[in-house]
């Protein structure tokens, strides 16, 4: 059963679910590298929800659902934006994109976690990390 936290579309307010999830990650005894990976993926997903999904609109919200167990960390981040097509996001590691200041978030989530799945037309991302 996933726990749910809804926060205003604000990067400071969005630290609350991050801190709660990381506290559970620590309680469950995950290593520092795993905590780093979860924190990075959460920051990227929440920033995407705030900036690209909700377009920095303070009247919108970000919904975070999560479960931390001995076996895995599972998180869903939902925004209220129009969605997007993940496959249309350019690969930031290609030479022609290296100089672009933006566009590395999805790539980093995929590099650090075991599962990164987009749903609801890009309005939701599901993140899973299994205990190593």
């Amino acid at each position: 059963m996933l726990k749910e936290i809804v926060v205003p579309n604000d990067l400071s307010a969005a630290k609350q679910p991050e801190q709660e999830i990381l506290a559970e990650v620590k309680t469950c005894g995950y290593c520092e590298n795993s905590a780093f990976a979860v924190k990075l993926a959460l920051e990227e997903a929440i920033t995407n929800a705030y900036r690209h999904g909700n377009k920095a609109d303070p009247s919108k919200t970000i919904r975070v659902c999560y479960e931390v167990t001995e076996e895995k960390v599972e998180i869903e981040i939902h925004d209220e934006g129009p969605g997007f097509v993940p496959e249309a996001v350019p690969d930031p590691t290609l030479p022609e994109n290296i100089d672009r200041p933006h566009g590395r978030g999805i790539m980093l989530m995929r590099a650090y976690l075991d599962v990164v799945e987009f749903g609801s037309g890009g309005k939701c991302v599901r993140l899973v990390m299994h205990r190593k």
């Binding site: 780093f36 924190k39 990075l40 920051e43 990227e44 920033t47 100089d99 672009r100 200041p101 933006h102 590395r104 978030g105 980093l108």
Partner: peptide, 16 residues
Amino acid sequence: DFIESSGLGGIVAGYL
């Protein structure tokens, strides 16, 4: 000890 992609982007923007 930690940096996310917006921070990395800031470094790229400063470099450019």
